[in-house]
Nucleic acid binder design. Structure first.
Lengths: 155, 155
DNA sequence: GGCGTCACGATATAGTATCACGCGACGTGA
DNA sequence: TCACGTCGCGTGATACTATATCGTGACGCC
């Protein structure tokens, strides 16, 4: 439930980031991104589709999946594998811009469903080291930590 | 492509582990576990179903999902979220038995699909520390590292 | 103006997972 | 021994997630 103003800013930054990369954040893509940013918790593709249909009666699964693919490709959102759902990338603008593949981890609350992204270097380093020890060349890692968030834990 | 003998041993160990926990590794569950252990790479539920049907023409999705749920619950297999597929737990008998939820990570080769389980303490510790720093109580973590395995990298 | 690319509409289908109902096998205690 | 409860599983339907394929209009580029 981020304030609307902040979301607008995020959208504009995202649009600028796309332009820099020679890509276009079309109205449809922008709308899908907005729907994702508007949600506290990760959103499923079909939930997005339903909301999209309010504005675009012709929307179908490929409509939303194509937008999601674009947003994923440009690092504007991430997929949470455990939930088969999508969430906005919140680690942009912290010095690395919208990287395609920046190391990140998720903290998923079992109680309230809130999911926050963190970017912990120690975790990323430990993963890289473990992979190397196994003779493995790591390209990308999914790290999804499930548990109880601070809010739910103290309540 | 583990040797048949070893698989047989694994199955018997699994059966013993279940008995210790007051659970039964029924023929169906044993067969599903066997099919999973027989595969090099993670196996999808419907691939299992197809193979199961050879023996049990009546097998349907719930047949295999129920067996998978049991095996997951008892720590005999893991689910690889990125692949929506299942793989045998290979970290049993290394001092902790078939824990319900032992820390583990997967190395998934993009080229050949081979997936190996590791149990790296440094990774687990880094994750626990990162969660704690965020005021989060971690219960369980999915760590799936995608890249190129040693075999494919040198070939 | 012809051409390629891109974004998107539209239909169909594939792949993953769960619900709901019922029934027979088994153990347990009255 | 029989009524009862639980468990494992069969069976059919359905929900949820994702992709394939074809068409079409907009745009930029020589």
């Amino acid at each position: 439930m981020t304030a609307t103003i902040s979301r607008e800013q995020q959208l504009n930054e995202a649009e600028a980031a796309c332009l820099r990369r020679g890509a276009k954040l079309t109205p449809l893509r922008r709308q899908v991104l907005d729907l994702i940013l508007a949600s506290d918790s990760p959103v499923g593709a079909y939930a997005l589709l339903d909301r999209l249909k309010a504005d675009r009666p012709g929307a179908a699964p490929p409509t939303v999946y194509r937008a999601l693919d674009f947003l994923l490709e440009h690092g504007l959102i991430h997929k949470v594998e455990r939930l088969n759902a999508f969430i906005g990338c919140t680690e942009s603008g912290h010095g690395h811009g919208h990287d395609h593949d920046h190391p990140h981890q998720f903290l998923i609350c079992r109680r309230c469903g809130a999911t926050v992204e963190i970017a912990d270097h120690a975790v990323a380093d430990a993963i890289a080291a473990a992979a190397t020890r196994a003779g493995f060349t790591a390209v990308e890692a999914t790290v999804e930590i499930e548990g109880i968030c601070a809010r739910c834990g103290t309540a």
